[in-house]
Amino acid sequence: MRRRQSHPPQLDLFPFLSILACTIGTLILLVVVISASSLGRERTNVQILARENAQNEGRTPRYLECRREGVIIHPEKVLVREADLGKPTSTLAILLANLRRQGDREYIIIAVRPDGFDCFEEVRYQAERAGVALGYEPFNAEWELCVPAPGRSNCP
């Protein structure tokens, strides 16, 4: 007498797993290609947006850019050399005095270049001493600061 063994039917998952592995590989390749293409694009014209919150609501931002050679006051693009930052007759000191007199109508946003941290420390010290509100953003060396024209919220 022959004994009958009852084995459940076997299900082969190899085709499913191979399709799943190919799909995952394709998605990884797609992520790598998209990431590499976005890294290759240079952002040359960048605007620092003023954030509307309770502290600066209704205020107009004034833009400064700290570099190795000094601070650039925008939109006029006046350079105040680092050696002149501490002088009471510098353009920066005059700007801070005007902002202090205006009260809470304007504040400063500072773009800090990688080589401009020493300049930034001096500008921040002077602004805090003058009682002027300020904000700051690190700024890549290759980017160009886009400052909106007075009365506009975006760059051209």
Rank of each mutant, 00 (worst) to 15 (best):
Q5Y: 08
L49C: 09
L49A: 07
S153H: 07
P8E: 12
Q5W: 05
I108Y: 00
Y136H: 11
N53I: 02
F120Y: 12
A133H: 02
P156T: 06
T91F: 04
E106I: 03
V132C: 05
P88T: 13
E106G: 07
R4K: 13
G40N: 10
A127I: 07
L134D: 00
V32A: 06
G116R: 00
V32M: 11
R51G: 06
Q47E: 13
F117C: 01
A127R: 03
F14V: 15
K77R: 15
E121Q: 08
K87Y: 06
V112G: 02
L95V: 09
F14M: 15
H7Y: 08
I94Y: 08
D12V: 08
R113W: 04
I19Q: 10
C22D: 07
G86T: 09
L49M: 11
R3L: 14
L64D: 01
P88N: 15
L99Q: 02
R100H: 14
I19N: 06
M1T: 13
P61K: 02
L17R: 15
R62P: 00
P9H: 04
T89G: 12
E42A: 13
A111E: 02
Y125E: 14
E121P: 00
W143I: 06
P88Q: 14
N45K: 15
E122R: 14
A141G: 00
A130G: 00
Y63M: 11
P9A: 15
G70Q: 01
L11G: 02
N53R: 07
E106R: 09
A83L: 08
R100S: 14
S153T: 14
